[in-house]
């Protein structure tokens, strides 16, 4: 135990350490338990999932097989739902990055008439949660004839006040010299932005991409309102619906869940540092 511990606690008592370890252990069980439970359940015969759920066997696949996964594909068009989620999320993230970073840049680094008033408008929209507009937007989309489509799940979510704000704060912090050098070279604002600013703003792009990805991938309320058939249904609505399909087979439902979270879990484990940094940076905004 050296004296340079950040907490400043020179000596940590044995009991404190024991309690800390116990707390960590309990927390691990609490957070990891349901995840393991889902994975193990997905590998068991359907009738055993609930029967063994109340014992230690809930965390041990006694008769493990991939039958449930096969069943999911047989019972519903899982591939279609997966594609829908990937396509919608991919489009919202990709186009959103372009549109919102450009706006963030225009607000942070360019001078133009109306900038301040419009920036106040963006800030005002920051406090408006999506739920506050879901209902009127729903009727508007019916007027557009967009009900049950991809665009109804993509287009309204491209422009995002919070993403603009995150880009804005990041671009404010970039050194002025970047643009001054570009100006001397005779580059216009567009070339400056795409060849100089964007490559220097990777952390901002990663943060916005991750947050947009999480929100869009998990979105339930909106697709529930605007999709009616299976054609454009994304995974969250699909699993809620799958759960109600008779016969109730928990193994299949858990297999559906594992496949639904697997892509995002892999991305998370690979880019964990970015996830954590991205989430942490949302707290820095004030």
């Amino acid at each position: 135990m050296s004296a340079a511990i950040p907490m400043g606690a020179a000596r940590v008592g044995r009991w404190t350490r024991l309690l800390g370890g116990l707390a960590l252990g309990l927390a691990t069980v609490f957070f990891l338990g349901p995840v393991l439970f889902m994975i193990v359940g997905s590998l068991k015969p359907d009738e055993l999932v609930l029967r063994e759920a109340g014992s230690w066997r809930a965390f041990w696949p006694t008769e493990g097989s991939l039958q449930n996964y096969r069943d999911v594909f047989e019972r519903v068009n899982f591939g279609r739902f997966l594609f829908n989620s990937l396509f919608i999320t991919g489009a919202v993230v990709a186009v959103g990055l372009v549109v919102n970073s450009m706006a963030g840049y225009a607000f942070a680094r360019m001078r133009w008439t109306g900038r301040n008033a419009l920036f106040a408008f963006v800030l005002a929209l920051l406090i408006l949660p999506f739920e506050a507009i879901a209902v009127p937007l729903f009727y508007m989309m019916i007027e557009f004839g967009w009900r049950d489509s991809y665009q109804v799940q993509i287009v309204p979510f491209l422009a995002n006040a919070f993403s603009i704000y995150l880009f804005y704060t990041f671009f404010l912090g970039l050194p002025r010299e970047l643009e001054e050098a570009a100006e001397i070279d005779g580059a216009g604002p567009w070339r400056t932005f795409f060849t100089l600013i964007v490559p220097n703003a990777k952390p901002a792009f990663a943060t916005v991409a991750i947050l947009t990805f999480l929100v869009t991938w998990g979105s339930y309320l909106w697709p529930l309102m605007v999709t009616s058939g299976e054609t454009y249904r994304p995974l969250p609505v699909a699993i809620a619906n799958f759960k109600t399909l008779p016969p109730l087979q928990w193994g299949d439902i858990m297999a559906f869940g594992v496949m639904m979270v697997l892509p995002i879990l892999l991305v998370f484990l690979l880019f964990q540092r970015w996830f954590v940094r991205g989430v942490a940076s949302t707290g820095m905004k004030n």
Binding site: V99, N100, M102, A103, Y105, A106, F107, M110, R111, W112, T113, G114, R115, L118, F121, V122, L125, V155, P156, L158, A159, N160, A161, I164, G188, P189, W190, F193
Partner: peptide
Amino acid sequence: NRHGWLMAGPALAGL
């Protein structure tokens, strides 16, 4: 001025 409007335009229209 025009560049600023064009860059912020798509997002502002969406919002």
